[in-house]
Design a protein around this nucleic acid. Sequence first.
DNA 1: TCGGCTATGTATAACAG
DNA 2: TCTGTTATACATAGCCG
Lengths: 140, 140
Amino acid sequence: MGRGKIEIKRIENSNNRQVTYSKRKTGILKKAREITVLCDAQLSLIIFAASGKMHEYISPSTTLIDILERYHKTSGKKLWDAKHEDLNSEIDRMKKENDNMQIELRHLKGEDINSLNYKELMTLEEALECGLTGVRDKRV
Amino acid sequence: MGRGKIEIKRIENSNNRQVTYSKRKTGILKKAREITVLCDAQLSLIIFAASGKMHEYISPSTTLIDILERYHKTSGKKLWDAKHEDLNSEIDRMKKENDNMQIELRHLKGEDINSLNYKELMTLEEALECGLTGVRDKRV
DNA sequence: TCGGCTATGTATAACAG
DNA sequence: TCTGTTATACATAGCCG
């Protein structure tokens, strides 16, 4: 279309490239809107120009999130796992830390100490005596 | 285009709608590919037909996740917060729990007790004595 | 229902200001 | 560089088999 046929390959002249981008962006956004209206389709179109500028079209009556959820379900491809995995591993890490402290606390309170061996009991006693001394010094 | 002009509104005849969808889908996918090649654009296009069938085009040299990250950064719109917020609040909750245990542990070890008032010290001392008794009983 | 055809409406490459 | 124009290539609506 236009005054001459062009090959579909990167337009080397940056000015032409920019102009073509702008026109085709308008075109594709229009097509996107049209197909959703004509055919009851749901669609998400996100375009970034080489310059970084962004344009989007999301079909009405839906949201990008809806579409991504559906994409997720339909394709089975997971989108936010990278993010989720980080958070999940952080949670696991804290959970372990938590459990360890929980156990130490119970021991210091004299609970669940049946499983401790003699050496561990001695260490614990020492810690308790030390703490007690500190507290008594302070209190007086 | 075609033998007659059509209005951009829902095509009522479901057969025509389906045919038009199929043709236009091909068209828009082609346009999507072309603009990325011609203009160095990055693009994500996801279409769901009314039937539920999905089609997508993601520009080469990128991934949908990249595009969504960029969308997030550029638009400021948060996409996965609903999902993430749950995890984040879980992390916050555990962090608090963690901190509290951390403090309690330090107190039991006689550390950082300057900030405690008399009553708190007494409670602490009691706990320590109780723990110590338990441990000594056990050790013997 | 479907794949292909073609007359016609659109999009756009090149150009002009 | 940007906006508008125009000749042309392209996309596609309605058909046909």
